[in-house]
Amino acid sequence: MKALGYALGLPAALVAAWWVASDGSTNVFLPPLRTIVEAFRDVWFSDTFVRDVVPSLWRLAAGYAIALAAGVVLGFVIGRWAAPRALTGPLLAYFRVLPAPVLIPVLLVAVGIGDTTKLVVITVGAVWPILLNTADGVRAADEVGLQCAAAYRLPRRTRHLLVLRGASPQIFAGARQALGLSIILMVVSEMLMSTDGLGFTVVQFQRSFAIPQMWSGVLLIGLLGFGLAKLFELVERRALRWHRGHTGQLTERP
């Protein structure tokens, strides 16, 4: 009960403060929270949701899923064998530091404008943290564990799976980073080159001075970022329970 109070206390107070402080606001740029909430209901609980939010989410999900699959597979190959690692080393070092947003104009020129481009932007931007972390994790696979697997003649497939599972803490770290990046790339790519989607709609509202509607869009993107991060955390906590136990971060014993 006390923990719940701590968790909800400040957020509730902040929302209440915003509500009260903005209630009589006549500033066009800072509309009352009441108005924003009304706009939120009007805008997003309508076919705008289907027209703008669904395409955004679809691109995000597809782009992220492809990045995840490609990143894990490529990262595994690069981390496991010396030859592909030596071959791709300098290239990876370059992409490790290349800021993802500059890929947008490049892909715009290379692939052209369209649904695919936004998807490709998300994939190409989000794949690096996953790939690099997977490669690091696979490369750091515990030698003792691998030698045991070899001595007991475990089949190649089983051994690969063991390595991958052992690298899962790093894979999750990369995937978490990639999720945040995907959302940013989704919004930015829609702001820059779209006819639908959340980013596009918010910019449209802003350009047409529909300020409460714009605020409601900002709120929705914020909620989306928060919600997806929480969902990810939930999956991660379940999947990596063993790792917290192994590294002594788990206090309760089942």
Partner: peptide
């Protein structure tokens, strides 16, 4: 030339030779 069948091993590093998951 490679680990033969019928061979068992126990290493010093028990924490690393078992799979924590």
């Amino acid at each position: 030339t490679e680990p033969p069948p019928g061979l068992g091993v126990v290493f010093q590093e028990y924490g690393r030779s078992l799979y924590a998951w």
